[in-house]
């Protein structure tokens, strides 16, 4: 297990790409994230932060999606 390389999506530096490993929340929030196509092995690119630093826009499966920090926190990725 190389669990130590996992970071939450909200810590992905701008312009960098990460790969989704798992979603660490349950219920409705989990479903929302899955609906965006954030399943295991999905590539995500952090595009930019909003003027106030939150939310952040990500490139997910061809679409640009903004996520608040607390939501992106629940997506664990590998750089």
């Amino acid at each position: 297990m190389k669990d130590f390389t996992l970071i939450p999506l909200c810590q992905l530096p701008m312009g960098r790409k990460g790969r989704v490993i798992k979603i660490s929340t349950k219920g409705k929030e989990r479903r929302r994230l899955l609906d965006l196509g954030l399943v295991s092995n999905t590539n995500v690119v952090a595009l930019q932060k909003s003027p106030s630093g939150d939310p952040t826009a990500y490139q997910i499966r061809g679409a640009v999606i903004a996520l608040r920090e607390e939501d992106a926190f629940n997506v664990l990725i590998e750089l």
Binding site: K28, R32, L33, P55, A57, V64, A66, R68, D71
Partner: peptide, 10 residues
């Protein structure tokens, strides 16, 4: 508290 939120930027 605010609930989870996603926004698509078309």
């Amino acid at each position: 508290v605010p609930s989870s939120f996603t926004l698509e930027l078309p």
